[in-house]
Design a binder for these strands. Structure first.
Lengths: 145, 145
DNA sequence: CTACGAGTTAAAGTGCACTTCAAGTCAAGC
DNA sequence: GCTTGACTTGAAGTGCACTTTAACTCGTAG
């Protein structure tokens, strides 16, 4: 079993050391063992970091990701609460995918479109109709740096 | 043709007046006519706001959205530059959708999963394998409030 | 005239996910 | 002993997309 420094982990998975410390401080990552003050990680950290990245990429906040991860931890899983959160998040992810799909259509069609103005761009109007009577008061998230 | 105040537009499409002013200042929204100092919008503003929302939701920054919109404007479309941007963005949107899909799978499977720890969760390992040797050094964005 | 609601501005504030900074510790090499 | 490089900490800074604030102007109603 190799024991890796924070720098080694960072290099190996392309995350800044500062981010790893940040995740630890925020309770996403368990505090690892130390060797003369320095953090020493085992291989398991990569799987954790991967889910963290996945969750944050998919639009979870740090707090939500913490809860998401707690759904997988061995200590007292508060299943009901977790399930509710997961269900809500699933909807948000669906909404995100739908909007991304719309944007994708819009982008693709823009390659073939030469409308002088938006007001009468056929493609856009079609997209808009496809989107339906939504006008949904956007609120979901999905960011990373 | 109705002429709407900023408040009326805001109410009708669920965006804060401050956001509308912000978009105008950032050049996403053309400056409308004024009536004793106050902005008066025509119906066309809704289509504009809808694309702005779509673009921002799909992860465009304000600057990118400005360029995206300029692709649709009647004045000198710098087609090459725009196409390059659109192509790059299309890739980013694809990546976003892929990650969202992964998160969705993870969420869905978490309903049926009762693994004591991540390290040996079959479902997660399968997801990970499906994701391939990516470890992609995340960089794309996709946020809104 | 006064009051009110809705608009105007520039500037400062907010929340999030990190990053950067300043000052220090530690082990190894010379 | 001194230097180097990688690490440690808490605190402050950053970028983005807005929001809030403060001080103001309008048109209308009473």
């Amino acid at each position: 079993m190799r024991y890796l420094s924070i720098g080694a982990v960072a290099r190996e998975c392309g995350i800044a050391p500062s981010a790893i410390r940040f995740y630890e401080k925020e309770g996403l990552l368990p505090a690892p063992g130390r060797q003369s003050g320095q953090r020493r990680y085992d291989e398991g950290v990569f799987a954790r970091l991967e889910i963290i990245g996945l969750a944050l990429d998919a639009g979870f906040t740090v707090g939500e990701t913490r809860m998401f991860l707690s759904g997988f931890s061995r200590d007292t899983p508060p299943a009901a609460r977790w399930r509710a959160l997961a269900a809500r998040k699933l909807e948000e992810v669906n909404a995100l995918m739908q909007r991304a799909q719309q944007m994708k259509s819009l982008l693709e069609s823009s390659f073939h479109c030469h409308c002088p103005s938006l007001q009468d761009c056929e493609t856009f109007l079609r997209e808009r109709r496809a989107a339906g009577a939504q006008r949904p008061a956007r609120q979901a998230k999905a960011a990373r740096r």
